[in-house]
Design a protein around this nucleic acid. Structure first.
Lengths: 184, 184
DNA sequence: CAATTGCTCCGAATGAGATTCCTTTCTTCA
DNA sequence: TGAAGAAAGGAATCTCATTCGGAGCAATTG
C-alpha cells in the first residue's frame, strides 16, 4: 500500500518549498532585468534548453516568485516628473484602511507601514507640484492623519524592481561578536 | 519659399515631443500592469488593430516612455524578506559618487537625492537583518556619510511601478488662491 | 481651390518563437 | 537491485509578433 502522506509531502515540496537552485536564480536575475528575452536566449544564458527554462519560469510564476511582467514607464516623459516620499504620522492603529484607499490613485506607487519615528511611508509620483499639494490635502483630510513629512526627489540615480542576486558578503563579518561568541 | 524651421519643428515634434494621445496613454496603462498581453488583445482594449498598437509601442519604446520590460520578483519568496528605506546624511556635496557605487549591490533598489532634512534616500531589500546591518556598515564606511536613519518596512500594502494614469482632480481646487487670483 | 506629401491606420501574409509531446536520464526510495 | 518520480532535451505544432502593401485623412503648397 502506497504511503499517501509521503506522496503529499513530496508534492508540496515540489510546489512551494523548493529552495531556488542556481538555475532558478539565474533565470530570475535575467528576467528581472529584461523580460523580453526569448526562452532560447534565456536557456543559453542559464545553460538549459528552451523547454526546460519554460517549465521553470512557469513554475516560478505559479509559486509566486514571479509576481508579473510589466512595462516600466518613465515618469518624466509620461507626464509625471514629480516624485516624492511621504512619511505619515497617524493616530489610531488600524485606521490604515483609509490610507489604503489611496491605492486607487495612479499617483500612489507604494504604501508601507514602517518601524521608526513614523507610521506609514508613501511613494507618490505626480504631474505637478500642485498635484502633489492636492495629494497631501487628501492625506490631511483623513481624520487619522496627524502629520506628514515629504521628501521631494531632486535626482534619481537608481530605480529598479527587486533583483534576484543576494550578496552573501553582507551577512559575514558581523560588527560585534554575537552573544557567546567569545574570542580569545 | 518653404519654411525650414517649421519643417524641423514638425520633425522634432514627431520624434520626441508628441504629447501622448489617449491611445498611447491607454496602451501605457495596460502594459504597466501586464506586459504579457498580446498585441491583438491590447489593440482590442485600446480600439486599434494589432499592427497599429505595435507601431505605437515601438515608438513609445524608442522615445523612452517605456524604459523596459521586466519580471517583477517577489522579495520574500525569492529570499529577501527584509525591506528598508535608509536616509543618509552626508557631508560634502558631490561626494555622492561613493554612494552610487552601491548600485552594484542587488540589494540596493533605489538611490535618490531628496530635498528635506536628509540628503540621500535609499531603498534596500536584504536577505536578513544581518545583511541589512552589513549594508549599513558599508554606508558608514564611506567618509562622506555622517549619519543614517533606517525605516524598516513591517508590511507592504502597495508596491508597483509608475502608472500611466494622471488624476486631474489633484490639480484642481487649490488650497489657497494663487497670487492675482482675487475673488470678488 | 486642387494636388501633393506625410502620417497612421487596417488586412493579409510570413516568419519567429512559444508551447506541447515524447523519450531519455538521473535521482530517490522501497 | 528494481521501480517510480522529476526534470531535461529534441522535434513538431501552433499561436502570435512582425512585415508589407494599400487606403483614408490632415496639413501644406502651388
Amino acid at each position: 500500500m502506497p504511503n499517501h502522506e509521503n506522496t503529499e509531502t513530496v508534492r508540496d515540496k515540489a510546489q512551494e518549498a523548493r529552495p531556488l537552485d542556481a538555475f532558478d536564480r539565474r533565470i530570475l536575475g535575467e528576467l528581472a532585468v529584461d523580460a523580453g528575452l526569448s526562452y532560447a536566449e534565456l536557456g543559453h544564458r542559464a545553460g538549459l534548453s528552451a523547454p526546460a527554462v519554460h517549465e521553470r519560469v512557469k513554475r516560478l510564476r505559479a509559486t509566486g516568485r514571479i509576481r508579473g511582467t510589466v512595462a516600466v514607464l518613465d515618469g518624466p516623459t509620461t507626464g509625471k516628473p514629480f516624485l516624492a516620499f511621504v512619511h505619515v504620522d497617524s493616530t489610531g492603529w488600524g485606521k490604515t484602511q483609509e490610507l489604503l484607499a489611496l491605492s486607487e490613485l495612479p499617483e500612489v506607487e507604494e504604501i508601507h507601514s514602517v518601524a521608526g519615528d513614523t507610521c506609514m511611508l508613501l511613494k507618490v509620483r505626480c504631474a505637478s507640484s500642485r498635484a502633489l499639494e492636492g495629494l497631501l490635502a487628501r492625506l490631511y483630510a483623513l481624520p487619522s492623519v496627524k502629520a506628514t513629512r515629504s521628501y521631494v526627489v531632486l535626482s534619481t540615480f537608481l530605480e529598479r524592481t527587486p533583483q534576484a542576486g543576494i550578496t552573501s558578503a553582507l551577512e559575514e563579518a558581523p560588527l560585534v561578536a554575537p552573544p557567546g561568541d567569545v574570542s580569545g
